[in-house]
C-alpha cells in the first residue's frame, strides 16, 4: 500500500514539474502572449460614390487597423445616397464573411428593416446616423452640431430667409442636424426654407436654389454638399454666406477664402480611428468606446489656430 502511495506522490511531482516545463515552453507561443490575435476584417461601407471626402478619416482608420490588427475594405456606392445599392453592397459583404461592418447609412430606416433578414451575427457599427441593431460610434452629437451651426449663422446676422439644403433626406443623422438648425433659426426669427437636393444629379437644381435672390444665408449639413455648394458659389460669384459641415482640404481652402463662412467640424482622423477601434472591439467582443465625438465650429480666420490645425489637417 505504501509503495503505491509513494509511486503516486512521485508521479505527481514529476507530472507537475514536467507540466511546468512544457508550460514554460509553450507559453511564448500562445497567441495571446504574442499579441497576434487573428486579423479582424472590417468592411467600411460609405454612402458616397467618392471616397476622397474620407481621406483624413482613412488615415485614422489605417492607423487603427495597423495598431489593432485589422484589415480594411473601404467600399463606396455607385451613386451617392443610394440606399438600395448600399444594402446590396452590405449583403455582398455579409456573404463574404466579413468580421464586422462599419456603415455610414444612406437610409438608416430601410437598412434597419433589411438588416434582421440577413440572419447574421456580424456586428455592425454605424457612423453619422443611428441604426437599429448597430452601435453608433465616432459621431458628433448631430442635433447639437446643427444648433451650433445655426447659432453661428444667427450670430452673423442671418435673418429673413435661410436656405437649408439637405442632400440626404433619408439619413437621420444629417436630417437631425438640419432639423436642429431649423429650430434655432426659427427661434431667432428667421424663416427656414428646407430643400432637398440630389447630389448624384447634375448641379443645375442646386444652382437654381442658390441663386434665389432673397436668401440671407445657406446652410448645408454634410461634407459632400458643402464642397459642391462652395464650388458652385465660387463659380457663380454669389455673396450669400454659406455654412457647412466637414472640413476637407478643399473646404478648408474655401473657408480660408471666405467662400464658406463657418463650418461645423471634427477630427476626421479621430473619427476614422475611433470607428475602426470600435469595430475591432465589437468583433473581439470587448467593450467599445461609444462616447460622442467632440465637434467645433470653425471660421476662416480661426483655421490656423494651433488647436484647430491639429484637429483638421493630417500630419505628414
Amino acid at each position: 500500500m505504501k509503495h503505491k502511495r509513494n509511486t503516486v506522490i512521485q508521479l505527481a511531482i514529476l507530472t507537475v514539474l514536467g507540466g511546468a516545463v512544457i508550460l514554460t515552453m509553450l507559453l511564448p507561443q500562445l497567441p495571446s502572449q504574442r499579441g497576434a490575435a487573428p486579423l479582424v476584417e472590417i468592411s467600411v461601407i460609405l454612402r458616397e460614390s467618392d471616397s476622397s471626402l474620407w481621406s483624413s478619416a482613412r488615415l485614422g482608420m489605417d492607423q487603427a487597423a495597423g495598431e489593432l490588427g485589422a484589415e480594411l475594405r473601404v467600399l463606396t456606392l455607385d451613386r451617392t445616397n443610394d440606399g438600395t445599392d448600399q444594402l446590396e453592397v452590405l449583403r455582398r459583404e455579409l456573404g463574404q464573411q466579413t468580421d464586422v461592418l462599419v456603415v455610414v447609412p444612406a437610409d438608416p430606416e430601410g437598412l434597419a428593416r433589411a438588416l434582421p433578414d440577413q440572419g447574421t451575427a456580424c456586428p455592425v457599427l454605424t457612423m453619422e446616423s443611428p441604426l437599429e441593431g448597430a452601435v453608433l460610434a465616432a459621431t458628433p452629437d448631430n442635433a447639437a452640431l446643427g444648433r451650433a451651426l445655426a447659432q453661428a449663422a444667427v450670430d452673423d446676422g442671418a435673418a429673413g430667409t435661410v436656405l437649408l439644403l439637405n442632400a440626404s433626406p433619408n439619413s437621420t443623422g444629417v436630417t437631425a442636424r438640419a432639423a436642429a438648425a431649423q429650430e434655432v433659426l426659427e427661434a431667432a426669427g428667421a424663416a427656414a426654407r428646407v430643400r432637398a437636393v440630389d447630389l448624384s444629379a447634375p448641379s443645375d437644381a442646386l444652382r437654381d436654389l442658390l441663386k434665389q435672390p432673397d436668401l440671407t444665408a445657406v446652410m448645408v449639413f454634410e461634407p459632400a454638399l458643402t464642397e459642391q455648394a462652395a464650388s458652385l458659389k465660387q463659380s457663380l460669384g454669389l455673396d450669400v454666406p454659406l455654412y457647412g459641415v466637414g472640413v476637407t482640404a478643399s473646404a478648408a481652402a474655401w473657408l480660408e477664402r471666405g467662400v464658406i463662412s463657418a463650418a461645423g467640424a471634427w477630427s476626421d482622423f479621430a473619427a476614422g480611428y475611433l470607428a475602426v477601434e470600435g469595430a475591432v472591439n465589437l468583433a473581439r467582443g470587448t467593450d467599445c468606446r461609444v462616447e460622442q465625438l467632440p465637434f467645433f465650429i470653425v471660421r476662416g480666420e480661426e483655421l490656423y489656430e494651433a488647436e484647430y490645425q491639429k484637429l483638421l489637417f493630417p500630419v505628414g
Binding site: S267, Y273, V315
Partner: peptide
C-alpha cells in the same frame, strides 16, 4: 510616432 492621435486628443 503617434502624433496624429495626440493631436486628435485620443
Amino acid at each position: 510616432p503617434r502624433q496624429q492621435l495626440i493631436y486628435s486628443g485620443l
